[in-house]
Simulated scan of single mutants.
Amino acid sequence: MKKLLIVDDNLDYLGLLVSVFEKHFEVYEASGVKEALSVLEDKEIDAICSDFNLRDGTGLGLLKEIRQKNLTVPFLLMSGDDGRMLEKKAKQYGGVFCCKTHYDFLAKVRELVNIET
């Protein structure tokens, strides 16, 4: 089963995402950048789905950091805001952006894990 890391500091939303995706993936969760990096040290993850705004940084900062460590794991940056700037920044570092409220959000995560790895 493919491994998905979900990063979000909204614990209610994180729990919701975990419950949806655990039917299809082995799901790991983190509530911030430091916790996500810790998971990545211990586990081989197939894809990361991270919120943009986190208590200890941003999902974009997490994406930059993992790319600096030469990790090429597929990365979906998500936000409640539908921002073109975030989409461009995510692409710049080899990530994908999706608004959390888009109708195809769940499909984008499944595609990220199944096609990119």
Rank of each mutant, 00 (worst) to 15 (best):
L4E: 02
D82S: 10
D42S: 15
V96I: 13
D82W: 01
K100V: 04
D81P: 00
Y28L: 13
K108G: 01
D104Y: 08
K43A: 15
K108H: 05
K2M: 05
L40S: 15
H24I: 02
T117H: 12
L14N: 02
D12A: 03
H102G: 01
L40M: 15
C49E: 05
A107K: 13
I66S: 11
K64V: 08
L71Y: 11
Q92A: 07
Q68K: 14
R55E: 04
D104S: 05
V18A: 04
Q92M: 13
Q68D: 12
K89H: 02
V113H: 05
T117R: 10
L11Y: 07
I45H: 12
L11M: 05
I6Q: 04
C99V: 00
A107V: 15
L37M: 14
E111V: 00
Q68H: 12
I48Y: 08
V27D: 03
V109M: 12
L62M: 03
Q68G: 04
L11W: 04
L11S: 05
L76C: 06
D51C: 02
Q68L: 15
N10W: 01
F52T: 00
R84N: 02
L77I: 11
G80P: 00
N53K: 12
L11P: 02
L14H: 09
K34N: 15
R55A: 10
K3C: 07
K43Y: 14
E44A: 11
G15I: 00
G95D: 06
V20T: 04
Q68W: 02
F105R: 04
F75A: 10
S19R: 12
L106H: 08
V27Q: 01
G15S: 02
D81A: 01
L86F: 10
H102Q: 12
V39P: 12
C49F: 04
Y103S: 14
E22L: 04
L37E: 12
L86I: 08
D82Y: 02
N114Y: 05
L11C: 00
K3F: 05
H102I: 00
E22V: 06
L37N: 09
D51V: 01
L63I: 13
V20M: 08
Y28K: 10
V96G: 03
I48C: 09
K23G: 09
V7R: 02
K100H: 03
V33A: 07
D46G: 08
L106F: 14
G61T: 06
V96T: 14
C49S: 10
K3P: 03
T117Y: 07
D12Y: 00
A47H: 12
M85T: 06
E29S: 14
D51L: 02
G57S: 10
I66H: 04
